[in-house]
Amino acid sequence: MTTDEPRTDPTRRAGVRQVAERAGVALSSVSRVLSGHPDVSELMRHRVLDAVAALGYEPDHLAQSLRRGASMTVGYVVGDISNPLTAQIALGAETALRRAGYSLLLVNSTSDPDLDAQHIRLLRQRRTDGLLLAMADERHAATIAELERYPGPCVLVDRVCAKLPRASGVHSDHRAGLSAAVEHLYRLGHRHIALVNGDPRVLPARERAAVLRRFARGVPDLEVTVRPGGFTAAHGRDATAALLAGGAGRPTAVIAGGNQILPGVLAAVRAAGLTVPTDLSLVTCDQVALVEFLRPPLATVTRDLGDLGEVAAALLLERLSGRARRRVTLPTGFRADHSCAPPPKRPT
């Protein structure tokens, strides 16, 4: 049995030269078609694309990046890939970068600063063009040292680090949204408010704690309690259980300082036999999927997480094009809801 089709080795990768030979055109013509050059006839385009399809040709991005001196890849170091907030921020960044022709390489440090440093070193070795970074500890010496060695631009995402003056940055105005939440609780009559907070080594937790303490300094009859810890449900459960074990001295309102802390807070409230808002008012930070279906609906400190990612990507693209570094602050808000009510009357 014979065939007019040439035999090809399925293990051998077709190259531009093979595409040109099959299409019967010059190598330069293949390059113009594949790069989207406008000065190409429709006949030429069809011949080249038919050859590409027949041969299963795929561009060699590594070789292209070596010729250009750019990998067209951006690294993103995140603390917890399982966090829905991380996914929303990464989606915003990836969408903006993809429009500009870049791919996003996501690495997860499980909130371990040493892994942050290792990932940055790996991304440097892989010659990524730039970095987005939400480090686990803004003051971690090894992380800062690796960033100082990194040759490309980097953008801090909801982080601040004075030791990295060359870095651009985008962060949320955590003070604005939480201030509105504390003021709302105070107007309802709450005089003991607790914050089950995240890790103070990062900006969001520090800012939220600062808001509560600053508010208390200006209002003599307000007592505040801050319980720092990891951004985990276990910390939320344990810290809230300890707060609620205070008897008559327990807080009448609790703020969950992160979406991952919230499930633990809710579990501790249920275990204590309390109901929201009859026995305890509750505010959470950052809206995530399914929270809107909780009853009662939760009062929430809000922000646009997709916008955070898009702005981070835009800042990095600016640096890659040679523009100066910038720092951007994005707004937060507060949505009051039925999880907040006046505190219960207590026996005098």
Rank of each mutant, 00 (worst) to 15 (best):
G198C: 07
G169R: 04
A181F: 05
A209F: 12
S168I: 06
A194K: 04
A205N: 00
E148P: 03
S179N: 04
R206F: 13
V196T: 04
R217V: 12
A209H: 14
E146T: 09
R213Y: 13
P153F: 09
D199K: 01
V211P: 14
L185A: 07
R214C: 03
R175C: 06
A205P: 00
V157H: 03
F215V: 05
G169F: 02
P200W: 00
Y186F: 14
I193N: 10
D199E: 13
K163W: 03
R206P: 00
A209D: 13
L185M: 11
A194P: 01
G177F: 08
H184K: 11
H190W: 02
V160E: 02
P165S: 14
R208A: 02
A209L: 10
L147P: 05
A145V: 13
Y150D: 01
L195F: 12
L195M: 13
L185S: 03
V211I: 15
P153W: 11
A162P: 15
L188C: 03
C161G: 07
V170H: 01
R217H: 11
A194H: 04
R191Q: 06
R149Y: 10
A180I: 08
V160F: 04
L185Y: 03
H190E: 00
R217L: 11
K163T: 08
A176T: 15
C161A: 14
V211E: 05
Y150S: 15
G189C: 05
A167D: 11
E183T: 10
V157Q: 00
H171T: 03
I144L: 15
P165A: 14
E148I: 09
V202I: 15
V155F: 12
R217C: 12
P151A: 11
G152W: 06
A145P: 03
L147H: 00
C161R: 04
R201F: 11
A210I: 15
A210K: 13
R175A: 10
A181D: 09
Y186W: 06
R213L: 14
G189N: 06
L147K: 01
T143Y: 00
R217P: 09
R191D: 05
Y186N: 07
D199H: 05
V202R: 09
L156K: 05
R159E: 06
P204Y: 04
R201M: 09
H190N: 02
L164S: 09
A167E: 10
V182Q: 01
A167F: 07
H192W: 08
R166L: 14
E207D: 13
N197C: 05
G218V: 12
C161D: 07
E183M: 13
V196I: 06
P200V: 12
R213F: 02
L178V: 14
P204V: 10
R175L: 09
D199W: 02
R159K: 07
P165G: 13
R213N: 12
D173N: 14
